[in-house]
Each structure stands twice: as C-alpha cells, then as structure tokens.
C-alpha cells in the first residue's frame, strides 16, 4: 500500500484513492493517419517495463479526479516525485539507481 502525494490536493493520500493508468508521457501521434501500422502498433501496445526508475500516470479517482505523474522505483517501490500532467520531471532518469 503506497502513500501518494497528490499534487492537486497537496496532501499525501492512501493508495486506495488512486488508480494507476500505466506508463506516463506517451505522446499520442499528432497525425495518426500518417503513421505506419508499425508506428501505430508501437504507440498502442509497446510499453517500458524497467527495473528501477519508471514514470507512470495515476489518477486520483476518489479525490479530485485529476491525472498526474509519478516517478517510482519498481524495485524498492520508493516514489521519488509526483508532478502534474503537463509538468516536467525533476529526476534524471538516465542516472543509474541503486536498488
């Protein structure tokens, strides 16, 4: 059970108020009609599954209903930051992490 800081409610809340919605920062292609089947398939189905830092999008379903981003360590389950949709992460994702 995580405890998650909602950047909109500005409070830590229990995990059962939230719903995870998968990998963050998936840009919907601006011109889907011009994508090849492969490009579209990559957008639709291919997701990262890293050991270590991962950025996910979560929704505060039982609270403010807002979506926001989480940078989370998939090994230690440590949440390093949460930030609003449209904002940028402050974590250097390339930096190697110890787990």
């Amino acid at each position: 059970m995580f405890v998650i800081y909602c950047p909109y409610c500005e409070e830590h809340r229990e995990e059962d108020e939230f719903h995870a919605s998968g990998q963050a920062h998936l840009a919907r292609p601006l011109n889907p009609d011009e994508c090849t089947d492969k490009e579209w398939g990559d957008f639709l189905y291919f997701r990262k599954n890293p050991r270590g830092l991962h950025q996910e999008i979560w929704q505060h379903t039982a609270g403010c209903r807002k979506f926001f981003n989480i940078t989370r360590n998939t090994v230690s389950y440590e949440i390093l930051e949460t930030y609003k949709a449209g904002e940028r992460s402050k974590i250097d994702m390339e930096k190697p992490q110890h787990d």
């Binding site: 409610c9 409070e11 809340r13 229990e14 108020e17 039982a62 609270g63």
Partner: peptide
Amino acid sequence: VVNTVFAKAQ
C-alpha cells in the same frame, strides 16, 4: 473538506 474512499464507496 476531502473527497476520499468510505468503506467501498466514496
């Protein structure tokens, strides 16, 4: 005021 989970409702 907060919106949250209550038993299995909100």
